[in-house]
Design a protein around this nucleic acid. Structure first.
Lengths: 237, 237
DNA sequence: TCAAATAAATGTCAATTTTACATTTATTAT
DNA sequence: ATAATAAATGTAAAATTGACATTTATTTGA
């Protein structure tokens, strides 16, 4: 016997939740589905896994094809496998989430499949179970970012503390005291103060910071505990 | 068109890492594989996903069939999908981990497939990529148990503080100060002291505690931060 | 029944971390 | 030069953590 003869075979797909940050709001990137059914309805970036690639490779490929994005932070989220989740034919989908610096990738984003950014609180109706995927991705982002410095993936290489704080505040839907936030972040030793300032948002200007790449790798698992304790939506991870 | 005609279909399986605790050591349950290739070699509990069930349902079914276990803590871990992970035919596997109270389920465990317990540091060679799955499961268990009270799933309904401490110490491969451990655990408000003592392990006897089920649900996401900061193997989650 | 042995239970103080809160500073525009 | 704007910064009280030793309940055997 060279095959598991009697077993059912399934279609397998990947779906990517792409997060970006415009300086104010966390957003996700959606495209209009190309196929029937639900053609032209909003969808995550998805595609079928090919015979010669792993799900990870498929996610990279699909993301590249639909958005032009490459080399971004990409992490497996969860697999969705209810028999009826795709009405045409049963498809098992491995969901991923990606974090991108919208500025850096603005040029790269291909318009071929016209992806559009949506703030999380103004999402259109999504096809299939994509709403659930987004909800889970948001939860996992919060959960993980509370312990690991992944939110920097959403920022340009040089960023200010006020910008970073905006990001954290939007992700956790809360607000932090400026002084305490700054102290906590700086205590990680992950940020390097630059000499230049960003003068776009204030008269005084805010100093730029960069990630200290050396410490970043080494201290990835030693980050902060940023979950507000009464935060909902961190229960399932 | 009622099908996605041109796409490849894949076998899809589930594999379960079952954790148990014998009072001293964290262990996992393995069985001997029933099929060629690698027949009789040690394997996680696995099985193919059927046409009418989700991966979650398959995991429950497979666990029941191979071990007799039912109603246990079961959580999706990650999907493994390298094209060559199963040498016979490409199979995408959704891995799960389960936490069981070995005492309670000792009777339930079916001997039909003769599962055996192995301490994590004395695991035999496993088939396919199961070693990776176990490594990831151990990592995720540590990670999650640092923030959520899931290790109680490994204990009988009534347990002593010394037993609980043994469990934490074994999971994190470290030791805690008895007084500080007790204070930290009790501060969660999750434990209810019982009137009886366990006299099996000491002359004085140690009081039993139960989980406060009401608080358990409510405070699931408010647990403690138990990760020793220099703990390796918490980087990928 | 008394003494010895065993493991459980408990308390305190110093160090660290977190929280709450208001003023000063650099720069631009008028 | 002055006003306006947002950035940067410090401090004291409260809470948490970490380090450390003694007392207590019970059993067993002298």
């Amino acid at each position: 016997m060279t095959k598991y003869q009697k077993q059912t075979r399934f279609l397998a797909a990947v779906d990517c939740i792409v997060f970006g940050f415009d300086g104010q709001k966390l957003k996700i990137l959606l495209i209009k589905r190309a196929l029937e059914p639900e053609k032209n309805n909003w969808s995550l970036m998805g595609g079928f896994i090919q015979a010669d690639e792993s799900a990870d490779e498929a996610a990279v490929r699909v993301l590249k094809k639909l958005t032009g994005l490459e080399g971004v932070y990409l992490e497996q989220l969860q697999t969705f496998s209810k028999p009826d989740r795709d009405p045409i034919e049963r498809t098992i989908s491995v969901a991923y989430f990606a974090l991108i610096d919208t500025q850096q990738y603005e040029q790269q984003i291909t318009d071929e499949y016209h992806p559009e950014w949506f703030p999380l609180d103004k999402m259109p109706k999504l096809i299939f179970d994509h709403k659930k995927m987004v909800a889970l991705a948001k939860e996992k982002l919060r959960y993980k970012a509370a312990l690991h410095p992944i939110l920097f993936e959403l920022l340009p290489p040089k960023f200010t503390l006020p910008l970073l704080q905006n990001l954290f505040e939007d992700v956790y839907e809360t607000s932090f005291d400026k002084r305490n936030f700054s102290r906590k972040i700086m205590s990680t030793g992950l940020l390097l103060k630059q000499k230049e300032k960003d003068k776009a948002n204030s008269k005084k200007g805010a100093f730029y910071y960069k990630l200290d790449k050396k410490h970043y790798q080494k201290n990835f698992h030693k980050f902060l505990h940023f979950i507000p304790y009464d935060n909902p939506g961190t229960a399932n991870l």
